[in-house]
Structure formats: structure tokens, C-alpha cells
Nucleic acid binder design. Structure first.
Length: 625
RNA sequence: GCCAGCAUAGCUCAAUCGGCAGAGCAGCCGCCUUGUAAGCGGCAGGUUGUGGGUUCAAGUCCCACUGCUGGCUCCA
């Protein structure tokens, strides 16, 4: 997308002299602070850089905001009792929250779109006027939603935008007239709590997208369709990776043989990587006495998400996190400063009672396995340990070619621990990211009450961001469980705990991996890595011998010797998203070779068995970090 | 949990106004013995998510539950 060139002093005159010429496509200005000023607010002789009608970020922001208003106007005409709350611009589009007595479903969106198009034909200008806040409170006296909006506005003056007989309290910016709104689509209807408060009333929200050109809108819709094709739920069913079962319960995934093979390979890669980095494997029980969860604070803070049960009259809780187990193991034997940092890791199965409405394929489930580790260290060791973890994260993300973002969440208002330790920990997190030349953003006050953290977020096929890895510094649990080590001066000291996960969970990560690769996993991950197609029954033995040979190297293969035509079996093999399809017939059997088919080019080449094995084992080692 | 929808064979979908549940793919059996993306023939597959109700008659209408989808809230 074109970004408007930064404002240059010498261009002022040019802009001014061209303004009449530009005005056909002029929809606003960008000042040198990066603020967008619409034409209604700019007045005569505006010296800021003009924003023309196109697909630039700034232009789209104006267009989308106005499209939201146009939608509101259409809704108001179709549902006269509708009352409007807020209608902001979001990624790719906009939404508007409103209250209406009638039920609005997906099929009503077309009707609203049609009304929007009718309104455009009326060629309304969008006009702005200002009134005092007191006047606004008076004007919207009968509209409690507008009263709620006004309550959040600190300014003494508020602006109203009007198009035809529709007007709305709004800060802008808006396009000068409805004629600029042509390429939009209403995408979905949803419910949204007033002000995001779960206890508040639920309003109706309609989402839409808007662009400056027909092509951009079409490209976006095509992108959505493509993303749908690689939805991990669809591919997971097609490839028989995983399943859910209504009778067994929501959010409880089953791993079918193909999925279990894939997952096992991922586990093995990570297992080796942990050992290389000096982690020790441990394993805690799945269920612990509720008193443990009271001590940890989970019972009080996280209790409603926990599954609790009773055994012989005692209350137990199924673990939602693995920390407690690791702490018990640490405490089992006396530790010296020489033992630190001590890194325990576990593929920990956890259960969390997620609300039914949030479950989403493998990306949000009620039982999942974390690649969890807890590093016990001194406060001085935080920086170097975090540096190491961040390097680990980066290696994993690079292996799969993931784009990811990191966010440091700092001390919240309600927090425990001394400021000096918080500062040291937060500085440690920042140093680690800067030391790895990794960009990050700061979530001020977003840390846990027990320490600051770094969250790692990956983007899925349709641009949704999912938190995967997390690195959390914790001063709280060591205190609560009285964890100690013997220091150099023979005194007892309290270690710091770093909680960290890199994938986050195998479930979520595999879900995202599936969409990322559209099911075409790299060789070292693919559940079936090679499919052999013997030309006739006579060549099946040769194929099975090869399969056995690959098995010895830890490579999964299948032989397609079904009672089908050769072409059919090749077609079936090609559709399996397998890295190698290998055909064997008289020629290959006679020469001890294989005929490899390149799936994309449909070209083929021959290798000797030895060359083939070298090629495959080489590709296996690419999955090393 | 809340708002709006959806649920027919393993998968993708059809069934007019409430009037005999159907197709393709996958599966199984047989013929064919194949040189690079669907050879031919046959068989089987269903209490239409579950439970109730209205009706002479329900896949279709109504209610509840379960599960799923898109959001809200939350989160690995």
C-alpha cells in the first residue's frame, strides 16, 4: 500500500496551487504529527499533506470510518428503533455496535448492503458541526448509548457528522461525500458486550470491510477464501490428523495415527533441542490435592477454570499448569547455588475449563500439552537465562519460517515483590530481546502480579494473532512454596522462577503449523514422508523392502499396492500432501533405483537406493535446532 | 457463559409447499497387471446430532439439550 510521502516544506505551495486540481480525489490531510484531518475540519488554506482517495493506510482509515457511518444510516432506515454505540475502524474494515429490537442475522446483511448502495445514490455530502458537550448531552437525552459514549469524552466540544437526515456523534475523520464509498462488504454479525464488560448488556455488532478499489476488495475476499482452504480444521479432517467427538465432550482433541506421528516428530525435535540447551526432563502428576492449589494461589485466582474432584473425602484439582510439580521436584533434594540455573522441562498435559463459546479447533481446547519449562535461578541470572530462551524461541520460529511478534508486559498496579527486583527482571527481559536484535513492543502494566513477562504471538493464515510462547519471571511461587537454595555464604536464599513455553501448546502450534504449510509439512515433520507406488503386483515386494529400510532410519512411508489402476494410485498419492511420491517398476527393481516424482512440476528423476537414502536422511536432519 | 447462525452416510452436498431419504468421493468384493493425476462392474453404508411436542403424515414446524461456526469476554 502506498504511504503518503512525508510533508516537505517546499511542497506547500505546490499542494496549494494544485489543490483545485486535486480536489476531485482529496479526502483529507495528514499533518506532520501523523494525525488525519478530514476536509470538513481542515478549512481553507490547510498546509498539511493531502490524502487522496486510494488504498493508502490513511485513506482507508477515512473510508472505513465513513463506511461504518453509512452502514449505521442504512440500519437506521431499516430498523428505525436502532440506537448506536461506537463504530470504529479495525484491521481491514470496521464495525458498529448498536441496539435493535429485531433479531439481525447473516441474511439481513445483504438487505443492509443494498440500502447502503441506495443511500450512496442520493449523493449526500458528509457535513460536520460542533456543539458543546452540554448541548450534546441535551440533544441525546433520550439515547442512553450516546450518553455512555459522551461520558467517555473529556473534551468540552464534540463534533457531529451529518449525511442526509442521519447524524451521529463522531470525532471523524470522514470522506467529504458518500460517493467515495463504493467497495465494501458486510462480513458478519456478532454480539458484543457494551463497553466490553461481560456483565453489561449485549449489543449487536456488524463487521464489514472496505477498500478504495474494487480490485483491493476482491483481492481481500480471495485471500479469505484461500485462508479457508487451509483452515486446520478442514485439513485436519482431510488428512486424518485429529478429531473431536461430540459424545466425548467439547474441546477434547483426539490424535489419529497421522496426527500422532506428526506430533511425535515435533516432540522429538524439541526434546533434543531441550537436552542440547541443558534442560532436564521431569514429570509431575496430573492431579494434586486442592491444598497445593490453595498455596499456589491458583485456587483463589484461577479456581473457576479448574476441574476439581474428590478422592476419599479430600478435594483434588486437575492441574491447569505444571509449575507446582516442578517445584516439588526441586524441593525434594537440597540445592546449592552451584546447581543454578536449574532447568526442568515437561510436556505437561493440562486441563482448563474454557468457556464453551471460545473453543476453536486445536487453537483453543480444554485439554492440551504445553512444552513447559521452569528455570530456577538467581535474580542476577535472569537476563542471561532469558537471553537463552529468546534465542531458543527464535531458532524454533526460524525452523518453521514463522513471523512472530514479542511483547514485554511490565509491572501492573497490583503486584508483589520489591521494585528493585521488578526493575532487574524487566531490564533482563529487555536486554535479552535487544541482545538478539529482536523488535518488541511494551504492554505497560500488562504483566502478571508475580512478575513481568514476554509473550510471543504468531499470526495464522487469515491474520489472526495467537499467543504461543511465553516467558514469565516469577517471584511469587518460590515465596509461597518456600523454595530455597544454599548460597555461597552458606545462607538460605530464594531462587527466582522463570516459566517458559516456546510452542505454547502442541495443539495450538500444530494447528497454526497446519495452516502455515497448508498441510504440506516439511519432510522432517510430515506424518507420511514417502509413498511408494509399485507399477504392478510384481513390484510390491521391492516397495515393501524399501519401506522397511526407511523404517530403520525413522522415516514413515506407505506402499500403495491397492487394486486400482496405476494412474489412480499416483493421483491418490499426489493428493496426500506427502513430500515424496516414488514409483517402482521393472526398471527400478532391475537397477536398484527409485523413480521420484516431483509433485509440483510433475517431472521425474531417478536415484539409486543409496542416493535416495542420503537425500532423505539429509532432509531429516534439517529438523534440528 | 452471552449474541447470531448451523447440524442429512466416513467426507462434500441434494431432497419443491410438511408427502417413498438421494448423489459423488472414500470404503469393501471381483475383473483388469498397469510406466506417471480418476480403467470397468458390483456390494455395503442412515432411528436425518439427542430427547420431547404439533400433525393423518416431520429431514422439513415448535421446545429443550449436545456439538459446531462467527464474534464478545478470556487465553497456551
Amino acid at each position: 500500500m502506498a504511504i503518503i510521502a512525508p510533508f516537505q516544506g517546499t511542497q506547500v505551495c505546490n499542494f496549494h496551487s494544485k489543490r483545485v486540481i486535486l480536489s476531485e480525489n482529496l479526502i483529507g490531510y495528514l499533518d506532520d504529527q501523523g494525525n488525519i484531518i478530514d476536509t470538513q475540519s481542515a478549512g481553507e488554506g490547510c498546509s498539511a499533506a493531502p490524502i487522496e482517495y486510494d488504498n493508502s493506510e490513511e485513506a482507508l482509515e477515512i473510508i472505513r470510518h465513513s463506511t461504518a457511518h453509512l452502514m449505521a444510516q442504512a440500519i437506521k432506515e431499516l430498523y428505525p428503533d436502532a440506537q448506536f454505540f461506537v463504530g470504529p475502524v479495525v484491521d481491514e474494515g470496521f464495525y458498529y455496535d448498536f441496539r435493535v429490537s429485531e433479531k439481525i442475522g447473516e441474511e439481513d446483511l445483504k438487505k443492509i448492503e443494498k440500502k447502503m448502495k441506495e443511500l450512496i445514490k442520493k449523493k449526500y455530502k458528509i457535513e460536520k458541526y460542533e456543539i458543546s458537550k452540554a448541548e450534546a448531552l441535551e440533544k441525546f437525552a433520550n439515547d442512553d448509548l450516546k450518553q455512555a459514549v459522551l461520558k467517555n469524552i473529556p473534551d468540552e466540544k464534540v463534533s457531529i457528522y451529518r449525511q442526509g437526515d442521519f447524524e451521529d456523534l463522531c470525532r471523524g475523520p470522514h470522506v467529504p461525500a458518500l460517493r467515495f464509498l463504493n467497495n465494501f462488504k458486510l462480513t458478519r454479525v456478532a454480539g458484543a458486550y457494551l463497553g466490553g464488560d461481560e456483565n453489561a448488556e449485549m449489543l449487536t455488532r456488524i463487521y464489514g470491510v472496505a477498500f478504495a478499489t474494487k480490485e483491493a476488495l476482491k483481492a481481500y475476499m480471495t485471500m479469505l477464501e484461500e485462508a479457508k482452504k487451509r483452515d486446520h480444521r478442514k485439513i485436519g479432517t482431510e488428512m486424518e490428523l485429529f478429531m473431536f467427538n461430540e459424545e466425548s465432550g467439547a474441546g477434547l482433541p483426539f490424535w489419529m495415527p497421522q496426527g500422532a506421528k506428526l506430533r511425535h516428530k515435533l516432540e522429538q525435535i524439541l526434546h533434543k533441542a531441550h537436552l542440547t540447551r541443558g534442560y532436564e526432563p521431569v514429570r509431575g502428576p496430573e492431579i494434586l490435592k486442592a491444598d497445593m492449589w490453595r498455596t499456589s494461589g491458583h485456587y483463589a485466582c484461577y479456581g473457576e477454570n479448574m476441574y476439581l474432584t474428590e478422592i476419599d473425602g479430600q478435594e483434588y484439582g486437575i492441574k491447569p499448569m505444571n509449575c507446582i510439580g516442578h517445584i516439588q521436584i526441586f524441593k525434594q533434594t537440597q540445592k546449592s547455588y552451584r546447581d543454578l540455573p536449574l532447568r526442568y522441562y515437561e510436556y505437561g498435559v493440562v486441563h482448563r475449563h474454557e468457556k464453551s463459546g471460545v473453543l476453536h479447533g486445536l487453537l483453543r481446547v480444554r485439554e492440551f500439552t504445553q512444552d513447559d519449562a521452569h528455570i530456577f535461578c538467581t535474580p542476577e541470572q535472569i537476563a542471561s537465562e532469558v537471553l537463552d530462551v529468546v534465542g531458543f524461541v527464535d531458532a524454533v520460529m526460524k525452523l518453521f519460517g514463522f513471523e512472530y511478534t514479542m511483547e514485554i508486559a511490565t509491572k501492573p498496579e497490583k503486584a508483589i515483590g520489591e521494585d528493585a527486583v521488578w526493575e532487574m527482571a524487566t531490564a533482563g527481559l529487555k536486554e535479552a530481546l535487544e541482545g538478539n536484535n529482536l523488535p518488541y513492543s511494551i504492554d505497560e502494566g500488562g504483566g502478571a502480579f508475580y512478575g513481568p513477562k514476554i509473550d510471543i504471538k504468531i499470526t495464522d493464515a487469515i491474520g489472526r494473532k495467537w499467543q504461543c510462547g511465553t516467558i514469565q519471571v516469577d517471584f511469587n511461587l518460590p515465596e509461597r512454596f518456600e523454595v530455597e537454595y544454599v548460597a555461597e555464604d552458606n545462607s538460605r536464599k530464594r531462587p527466582v522462577m522463570i516459566h517458559r513455553a516456546i510452542l505454547g501448546s502442541f495443539e495450538r502450534f500444530i494447528g497454526i503449523l497446519t495452516e502455515h504449510y497448508a498441510g504440506e509439512f516439511p519432510f522432517f515433520l510430515a506424518p507420511t514422508q514417502v509413498i511408494f507406488v509399485p507399477i504392478s503386483d510384481a513390484h510390491a515386494d521391492y516397495a515393501f523392502a524399501l519401506k522397511k529400510k526407511l523404517r530403520m532410519e525413522g522415516i514413515d512411508s506407505e506402499v500403495y499396492d491397492k487394486n486400482d489402476s496405476l494412474n489412480k494410485r499416483i493421483r491418490t498419492a499426489e493428493k496426500k500432501r506427502v513430500p515424496y511420491v516414488v514409483i517402482v517398476g521393472d526398471e527400478e527393481v532391475a537397477n536398484n533405483t527409485v523413480a521420484i516424482r516431483n509433485r509440483r512440476t510433475r517431472e521425474q528423476y531417478n536415484l539409486t537406493q543409496d542416493e535416495f537414502m542420503v537425500e532423505l536422511t539429509k532432509q531429516l536432519t534439517e529438523g534440528t535446532i
